[in-house]
Amino acid sequence: MQIMITHGRLARTRVLQLAPWQLAFLVLLLAAAMLALSGAIYHFIFLKAARDGWPVVSQLVKLVVKDEFAQRDRFMRENLDAMAQRVGEMQAKLIHLEAVGERVSGLAGLKPEEIKPASDTQPAKPGEATGPGGQGGPFIPSGRPSLTELNRAIDWLDEFSAQRADVFTMIEARLFEEQMKSLMVPNTKPVEGHTSSGFGFRSDPFSGRSALHTGLDFPAPTGSPIMAAAGGVVVRAEAHPQYGNMIDLDHGNGLVTRYAHASRLLAQQGDLVKRGQVIAHVGSTGRSTGPHLHFEVLMGGVHQDPAKFLTNDAPAATAVAERPSRGRNSRVARSVAAVGIDATPAAP
């Protein structure tokens, strides 16, 4: 493409040679300049005229952009209404969550004063009076809310949710603490099966005289697994003249369980064991008449009835413990040999 430029006075002609790609680039550059110019005119003249109310131009601009402003206004109103509804629903859910948190905290053993914020007050709801007198309920704006009201509501939601998160963190910590305590309570049978002799006075299987039996007896074949009734630390794992091969587990707070007459000890002193872990095998070592486990529970060095801890076995064990001893010594010795109970006196 050629463009000829002629100047009248000098009668000289200039010829410009444009390749196709140069022509296309020139057209695009011209179009971009037109768009930029029109945008600048629209922004700096027409919109300014509409805002400042120029006498003639503002009327023309309002006629041109009237529909556009109406659409924008309608869109904003619809969005504000939708946001207000969502904020109201979220606040109602948080109020419900607060009630649930208070109930759960009560079940977890937390006192009301322990879950109150440091300021001892709840964040004021948007539009709620902060003076004396109780007020409450979720904030659901009536009519069409303003953007300022929505911002206040969102700020309240943020602060309130942060407080609820802290409360549930405390509840989680307390429940975990209670769970750890339950894991340290010996309420699991150390040997599968029934008990043959309970806690209390009975006829001694060797002397025939009345004596205190300080634990529960679990008859089982030699080599049967003995499991820890709860998690704890092995404080004794040794042979004893009367208890035979025995293990003592310390569960904390002065609570100790004892496992006696084992044929083999698997845990050693200082070991940390968990509930249900096999720590020994059933035997008949020490002062015993047959293979069985003698199980004791001591609190502060004082023997307790293990049946009170082993809830699943409590009725049977209690019944055995309360059964009166009758008959001659030979009859007692035969029954003892049949079921395999021990004649272990009180612990040293």
Score class of each variant (00 low, 15 high):
residue 248 D to I: 14
residue 229 A to L: 03
residue 112 P to S: 04
residue 81 D to W: 02
residue 31 A to T: 05
residue 203 S to K: 14
residue 19 A to H: 13
residue 114 E to M: 06
residue 85 Q to A: 07
residue 239 A to E: 14
residue 211 A to F: 10
residue 196 S to Y: 04
residue 279 I to P: 02
residue 202 R to D: 12
residue 208 G to D: 12
residue 73 D to C: 01
residue 43 H to M: 14
residue 146 S to G: 07
residue 68 E to K: 06
residue 316 A to P: 00
residue 171 I to A: 08
residue 121 T to I: 06
residue 290 G to I: 09
residue 269 Q to T: 15
residue 237 A to F: 02
residue 213 H to F: 09
residue 12 R to P: 12
residue 184 M to H: 06
residue 294 H to D: 05
residue 147 L to I: 14
residue 165 A to I: 08
residue 141 P to F: 04
residue 71 Q to E: 05
residue 244 G to H: 12
residue 33 A to L: 03
residue 279 I to H: 03
residue 218 F to K: 00
residue 314 A to E: 04
residue 253 N to Y: 10
residue 279 I to R: 03
residue 324 P to T: 03
residue 134 G to F: 08
residue 46 F to K: 10
residue 27 V to C: 08
residue 261 H to P: 09
residue 153 A to Q: 00
residue 20 P to L: 15
residue 127 G to W: 08
residue 294 H to F: 06
residue 105 S to V: 11
residue 221 P to N: 09
residue 186 P to Q: 05
residue 65 V to G: 03
residue 20 P to N: 14
residue 153 A to N: 00
residue 168 F to C: 14
residue 198 G to M: 11
residue 224 S to L: 01
residue 282 V to E: 05
residue 188 T to M: 15
residue 68 E to M: 07
residue 273 V to N: 04
residue 313 D to P: 00
residue 67 D to F: 03
residue 235 V to W: 09
residue 216 L to G: 01
residue 330 S to M: 10
residue 340 G to Y: 07
residue 220 A to P: 00
residue 268 Q to W: 06
residue 106 G to L: 07
residue 285 T to R: 13
residue 87 V to D: 01
residue 248 D to G: 11
residue 139 F to G: 00
residue 316 A to F: 04
residue 159 E to Y: 01
residue 339 V to A: 11
residue 135 Q to M: 11
residue 161 S to L: 09
residue 38 S to R: 13
residue 110 L to G: 00
residue 125 K to E: 01
residue 100 V to G: 14
residue 33 A to K: 00
residue 162 A to V: 10
residue 262 A to M: 07
residue 118 A to L: 03
residue 197 S to D: 06
residue 129 A to I: 11
residue 304 Q to L: 04
residue 103 R to W: 15
residue 106 G to F: 06
residue 10 L to I: 10
residue 48 K to E: 15
residue 227 M to D: 03
residue 184 M to W: 05
residue 212 L to R: 14
residue 291 P to V: 08
